[in-house]
Amino acid sequence: MRYAIGFTPSVCDPLTYAAADWLGRNPYSDALCEQPHVAGFSTAEFAFLTAVPRRFGFHGVLRPLFRLADGMTEADLLYALMRFTSELSPFSIGRLSVQLKDSCFMLAPAGASAEVNALAAMILQRFEPFRAMLSDAEIERRDPDRLSAAQFANLLRWGDPFVLDDYRFHMMVTGPVPAPSQLRMATALQTFFEPFCLAPLEINSLALFVEAGAGAPMRVHSQHPLGKLPAHRVRPRTAAPIEDGHLPAPVGETRVALAMRALVPAR
Results as ranks from 00 to 15, higher is better:
Pro36Cys: 08
Arg25Ala: 06
Asp30Val: 10
Asp70Ile: 11
Phe7Ile: 08
Ile93Leu: 11
Arg25Val: 06
Ser10Thr: 14
Tyr28Met: 00
Ala75Gln: 15
Leu49Arg: 04
Leu65Gln: 10
Cys33Gln: 14
Leu77Thr: 00
Val61Asn: 11
Ser42Arg: 06
Phe58Cys: 09
Leu23Arg: 12
Gly40Cys: 01
Ala75Ser: 13
Ala44Asp: 14
Val11Tyr: 07
Val52His: 14
Arg55Ser: 10
Trp22Leu: 07
Leu81Gly: 00
Glu87Phe: 07
Arg2Ala: 10
His59Tyr: 01
Glu87Arg: 15
Leu78Phe: 00
Arg67His: 14
Met1Tyr: 07
Phe48Arg: 14
Ala75Met: 10
Asp70Arg: 13
Asp13Gln: 04
Glu74Asn: 02
Ala39Ser: 11
Arg2Cys: 07
Ala80Thr: 03
Glu87Ala: 15
Ser29Phe: 05
Asp30Leu: 15
Gly57Leu: 10
Val61Pro: 03
Arg54Phe: 09
Ser89Thr: 14
Leu65Val: 06
Gly24Gln: 07
Ala51Lys: 14
Glu87Val: 03
Ala20Asp: 03
Val61Trp: 02
Asp13Leu: 07
Ala69Thr: 02
Cys12Met: 06
Thr50Ala: 10
Phe84Arg: 05
Ala80Ser: 11
Ser89Met: 12
Gly71Glu: 01
Gln35Glu: 09
Phe84Trp: 05
Glu74Tyr: 01
Ile5Arg: 01
Leu68Pro: 03
Leu96Thr: 09
Met72Cys: 15
Ile5Gly: 02
